[in-house]
Design a protein around this nucleic acid. Sequence first.
DNA 1: TTTAACTATCGTTATTCGACGATAAACGAA
DNA 2: TTCGTTTATCGTCGAATAACGATAGTTAAA
Lengths: 117, 117
Amino acid sequence: MNTENDLSNEQLAAIAKALAHPARIQIIRLLLSKTSCIGGEITHEVGLAQSTVSEHLRILKAAGVVAGEIEHPRVCYSLNLNSLLPLMSLLQLVADKATTVAGSDGLCCPLTPQSCD
Amino acid sequence: MNTENDLSNEQLAAIAKALAHPARIQIIRLLLSKTSCIGGEITHEVGLAQSTVSEHLRILKAAGVVAGEIEHPRVCYSLNLNSLLPLMSLLQLVADKATTVAGSDGLCCPLTPQSCD
DNA sequence: TTTAACTATCGTTATTCGACGATAAACGAA
DNA sequence: TTCGTTTATCGTCGAATAACGATAGTTAAA
């Protein structure tokens, strides 16, 4: 099920880091909601300075989360769907553990910690 | 399928931020691999100073990703499985979009950006 | 060629992060 | 009570982040 789950801690952390800002989450959601590519309207939508948004886009591109294609005067941004799969795999492992051992509180064991050494 | 998907950008970013460090990914993987709770061996396993690991654990606890139960002299840490579901939902949306519109490169459109305005 | 529109880069500043050692706190055992 | 074990907190320092304005680069259109 997991295509490639064993990425390094550093690589997984880098993916998470790319998502670790409200503006970048917003950008991802924008790209998710649009069927077509969008350029500069991202800046307007986010509500931060153009240079700031450009920096966030640079971070997302550096992490491979989004891709930018130069298109006329603007840039066509789109999600790179494969880039988030490694993080998805890790979260899936957590979810799988949840279905097997978790109680209703979502905790794996602390309510009955007799298994602790 | 999504129990609660519409968390704020800030909340989702906070979850991602908790994962945005190699040591914290490593801690999560440790908690994932152990069936029983573990305490101080996390420190030894991570290889950083005890105070540093404690700080990472504090961050994970503050984000709700792990829970700590006081157990004798040590603390029994465990994953809070529900805490990661919101981020999981967002990534699932991306994955869903991947299966519907993506090409083999994982990009949603830049190779044929004629849909850009 | 010049202009207009859009994006990237640079320089700066304030804030946050990560790591460490030192120290404090909690508590069972001696 | 005193000691030993384990974890949390504090103070500090250097590095990284986030935000902005100003500026430079790119390219279609005039």
